[in-house]
Amino acid sequence: MPAEALNVSGLSKTYGTTQIVQDMDFSVLRGEVFGLIGPNGAGKTTTIRMTLRIIQPDTGSVTMFDKPFSEESWSRIGYLPEERGLYKQAKVFDVLVYLGRLKGLSASEARQRTQETLELIGMGEHAQKKVSELSRGMGQLIQFGATIVHKPELVILDEPFSGLDPVNTEKLKELVLGLQKQGTAVIFSTHQMNNVEELCDRVLMINHGRAVLYGPVSEVKQGYRNNSVFVAWDGPRERVRGVSRWEDRGQTVEAYLVDGVAPESVLVDMVQLGGAIRHFEVSMPSLHEVFLRVARDGRNGRE
């Protein structure tokens, strides 16, 4: 098992009488893409800001690369905030060099890394342009470049895909996967569950400031499956054992299984009973459905 890049333990924050984040525990492994999901106002951004010591937690601790968080930790982190922007009147190259230097690079290193990063994100030709001359999508890619210019070992992206067109979204996904291949741990917070399913190894879902789901994506989905199968079959349904009810879903029918009955035994029965089986699929909720159910139900407790 890879070593931990980040360990968050018991993080809490209260503003006035409102508890924004409560007892947050999670860890992120090196080389892992980790999803931080939850509805608006759930406490995701506050959790990220506390993790980075942008705001001080009331309680809890943060360990980064097996060391307590310190000034030195910042040089190993890249952060793309949800509310983002850069100096509008400055040149792209100068901004990246400046932000690289604040991460501890020397002047010559920062210049070299800036050039490499701009090439990596396909923005090399815009190096000498002012930030204000770029389109919104280009600006976001530049901002991503600023996040990784110092080759961080942990990258935190807060809603990285918002405002991006499909082309730039795909580009950003490629860049994120590229970071993962290099062993960089990536945390991203988003509402877009399709991206989480596509990219993330594990997720943490936050609701009302508390962790409500935490684990590998497949296990989280497994925990919320209906124990049903979708079938397109011409055989006698009433003779299949272990099915409590059948519901028509258009092209398919959903068979709800009795507790303890495995989908495989239903498939065996269908084969033995005869008739053409055109479709058989074990029902598994999408992360989007899990997200909606948890958000609506306000379901608590970790899976």
Binding site: R84, G85, Y87, K88, L102
Partner: peptide
């Protein structure tokens, strides 16, 4: 106020105190 308006401030706060 420029760093606040352009939202650059949060990026800076992830590098320096």
């Amino acid at each position: 106020t420029e760093e606040k308006q352009t939202r650059t401030i949060e990026v800076l706060f992830s590098s320096v105190s």
